[in-house]
Design a protein around this nucleic acid. Sequence first.
DNA 1: GATGAATGAGTGTTCATTCAT
DNA 2: AATGAATGAACACTCATTCAT
Lengths: 234, 234, 234, 234
Amino acid sequence: MPSKPKTKPAAPPSAGRPRKSPRERASTGRAPARRRADAKTADARRAAILAAALDVFSRHGFATARLDDVAAKAGIAKGTLYLYFASKEALFEELIRSHVTPLLDNLESAAAGAPPAALIARFFELFRTEILGTERKFILQLLISEGARFPAIAEFYHREVVSRGLHLIRSAIRDGGDAGMLPADTLERFPQLIVAPLILSIVWDSLFGRIDPLDVEGMLQAHARLLTAGKSSQ
Amino acid sequence: MPSKPKTKPAAPPSAGRPRKSPRERASTGRAPARRRADAKTADARRAAILAAALDVFSRHGFATARLDDVAAKAGIAKGTLYLYFASKEALFEELIRSHVTPLLDNLESAAAGAPPAALIARFFELFRTEILGTERKFILQLLISEGARFPAIAEFYHREVVSRGLHLIRSAIRDGGDAGMLPADTLERFPQLIVAPLILSIVWDSLFGRIDPLDVEGMLQAHARLLTAGKSSQ
Amino acid sequence: MPSKPKTKPAAPPSAGRPRKSPRERASTGRAPARRRADAKTADARRAAILAAALDVFSRHGFATARLDDVAAKAGIAKGTLYLYFASKEALFEELIRSHVTPLLDNLESAAAGAPPAALIARFFELFRTEILGTERKFILQLLISEGARFPAIAEFYHREVVSRGLHLIRSAIRDGGDAGMLPADTLERFPQLIVAPLILSIVWDSLFGRIDPLDVEGMLQAHARLLTAGKSSQ
Amino acid sequence: MPSKPKTKPAAPPSAGRPRKSPRERASTGRAPARRRADAKTADARRAAILAAALDVFSRHGFATARLDDVAAKAGIAKGTLYLYFASKEALFEELIRSHVTPLLDNLESAAAGAPPAALIARFFELFRTEILGTERKFILQLLISEGARFPAIAEFYHREVVSRGLHLIRSAIRDGGDAGMLPADTLERFPQLIVAPLILSIVWDSLFGRIDPLDVEGMLQAHARLLTAGKSSQ
DNA sequence: GATGAATGAGTGTTCATTCAT
DNA sequence: AATGAATGAACACTCATTCAT
C-alpha cells in the first residue's frame, strides 16, 4: 500500500470541511500574508501525515501504532503532528473520514435509474476497482477492526456510507421492477445480503489472506449469478 | 471431535485432563497429593479468568485491555494470572482457542448426510443459538478485530473452524445432489457465500448494533430462501 | 561446582549454633517425640538447601537469584525454604557463615609455631586445595561481590576470618624471628600484602577467568619467592 | 591514547562529538539547527545521569538500583533516561566505560622509559590520587562486584585496562634491566603481583572500610619496598 | 509554523513471602 | 513439617502529549 500512485482522490483537504488543525492560528497577530505557498505546503503535509497514518495504523492497529512512526514516515517532527491533528484519536478519525466520502457520490450518480442487475454489477466492479485495489481496503479493515471502539466513526460511516448505500440498492430494486432479480422484496428488505460477500472478502483477506487467498472476483461473479439466478431459469 | 485425532486443540478447556498444577513446573515429579478440592478450584479459577478476559478484551480490545481489570473481575490478584497464563498474549490466544473447538463437533455430527437445504437451515440455527446469543459472539468479534495481529490464532481458526466448516458445506452440496439449491456448483466453489451474512451480522453488530440493530433472523431466513430460490420455481 | 563430591565439611548443622529455623515449633503441643529420623532429614534438607543456594547465588548473585530455583534444585517446595530460613537474606547470610568457620581452625592449629616461610607455604597450599578447588571459592566470590550490601556478613567475616588470619600471620612473623622473610616488620604491619594475591586470584577468576585464565599456582609460588627473596641472596 | 587507533572506546564521555540528539534517530536527516545551548545541555544532562547512576548503582548494586532514584537524583523525569541510554544495562555499561578510558593514557605516556621502581612508584601514586580519592573507586568496586554478570564489561575492561596495564609493567621491567627489582623475571611473568594490593585495598574498603580502615598509603609503600627489597641489600 | 527533547502516567511482568491444606 | 497456590508490591520501559526554542 505504500507508494501506490493509483487512486488518491482522498480528502480534498481544502474543501468545505472547516478544518481547524493548524491550531486556529492563535497568539501572534502578524503574518496573515502568505497564503498559496504555505497553504499548499500545509495541505501537502496534512496529506503526508494521513498517508503515513494509514500505513502505520493499517500495519499495527490503532492502539499499537506509534505516532513516532507516523511522523517519521510523513517526514515531519513528532510535535508537528499536533499542529494538524488534535490527538491520536482525532488523527485516526479524520483518516477514516477522509477516505470515506468520495466514493459515495460516484456510486449514487453512476447508478441513477439503472436496472438492479446492472447496479449490482456496477457495485461489485466499483468495490473491486475502487476498494480492493486501493488503500481504501485498509480503511475498511481499520473500520471493521477498530470501529467498535470509535462510535463516532461508526455512526459517521453508517450515516454517510452504509445507509446511503443500502438506500441506493433499495431504490434500484424498487424502481427496477422485478427485472430478473428473483426475491426482489426480500432483497429490498435485506440489501445487506448483497454486500455481505464484500465484507467477508475484507475480513477474509485480513485474517486468512496470507494462508488461503480468496478469489474475490470469482466469488462476486458467483454471488451476482446467485442474486439473479431466477432470471434465466424462469 | 472426540474421534478426530487430527489436530491438537491446544487446551481442551473443560476436559478431564488432570492438570497437575497451574503452569506445570518441570521440576519435581512428586506430590500428586490432594486432587478433588483444589483441582476443581484451579479449573474454576481458570474459567473465571477466561470469563473476565473475554469481558475485558471484548470491551477494550487486546492492546487496551488491562490485566489489572481482568484480575479484578476474576476476583484474583494480578500475579495469579501468571500462574494460569504465561502472558497477556497467551491469555488472549487461549481465550479464543477455548471457545472455538466445541461447536465444530456439533456441526459435523449434526449434518452427516442431510440435504443441503437442511444443512444450511441447521447451520444458521446453530449460528443464532450457539453464537449470537452467546459469548461466542464476542469471541468472533475479537477474532475479526484482532486476528490480523495474531497470525497463530488466525491460522488456528482457519484450520479448526473455517476450513472444516467450508468442507462440511461443500460435501453436503456435492452429496446432496442439486436438491433444490440452484447453483450448486457455484456454491460448491464458493461456500463462503453461504456464511457471508453471518460474518456481516457479526461486523454489523459490533459497529452499528447500537444505532441500527439488524434483524439477523430475518436476514438469515431471507438468505436461505435466496440460496434455495430455484427450488419452488423450477 | 554442582556435583562436586570433594570437600564438604561444610556446616556441622547440628553443632552448637542455636539454629532456630524449623520455626521454633510453634502452635501444636503434640509430637515432640521423634528425633533421630526426622532430625537427620531436617539436617539433610537444610544442607540441600544451602548447597542449592550456593549454586544459584553463585551463578546469579544475590539479587538476581530466585528462590524458586533454590527450592527446585534442593528438591523441596518453595514454602519449605521458609521453614529453614527466615528470608532470602537470612539464607544468604547463613550460607556464607556456614562455609566460613571450618577452615580457620584448620589454619590455626596447623601453623602453631612454624617458621614464617613455612606458614606462608602452608597458607598458599591451603588456599589452593581448600578454597580454589572447592565451593568455598564461590563463597569468597559472593562475599567479595555482595559483602558491601551485607554489613553483618562483612563484619562477621572480618571478625572470624580476616582478623584471625592476619593475627596468625603476624604472630608467626613475630615469633619466627626474621627467618629469611626480608622485611619482617613491614609484613607484620601489613600482612594483607601476603594475602593480596589470593584476593586478586578470586577477583580475576570471576571477571577474566573465561577469557584469560590465571596460573594461580605459578603466581603464588612467585609470590612466595618474592616474600622470602632476601633469604638466599643475603 | 589520542594516538592509539586500536579499540573503539564506545562513548567518549566528554569529547566534542556533535551528538545530533540523544539516541540518534535513524529517520530524518534534516535539522541540525540550534547547537550551542542545547548541545551543552544534552551533555550536561548525560553527565548528570551518569553521576546519579554512579551514586545509586554504587549504593545498591545493579539489580537493586532503581532508575526512579537515578532520574530523581539527576533531576530529570524517568522517561528522559531513555533518551540518553537504551536500558538500565546500557546505562550501567556506559557508566563503567565512561570512567575507564581516561586514566590509561595518563599511565602509558607517564611511564615511557622510566626505571621499574619509578614506574611502580608512579603507578601507586596514580592509584591513590586518581582512583582512591575519586569516583573511580566506586567504578572499580562496581566492576568487581558486578563484572561477572556483565561479560561485555569485563572483557572491555580486560582489554582496555588490565592487559594494557600489565603490558606496561612488563615492558618497564624488561627494558629497565634489573634496576634493583629483585625477581625481575618473576614479576615479568606475574605483573599481577604488583597490582594485587591495589585490588585488595578496593575490596577491603568496600567490605571492611567502615569497621577497620586500611592504611592504603602505608601498605603501598611497604609493597614498593618489598618489590625492590633486594636493591639495598645486594 | 516547526521542532524534538522532555515529561510522567500507565502497565505487563517478576518474585519474595504467606498461609490454607 | 511440607506443600505450592496465591498474593501484591515493585519496577523497567513505553509513548502520547507538551512546550521552550
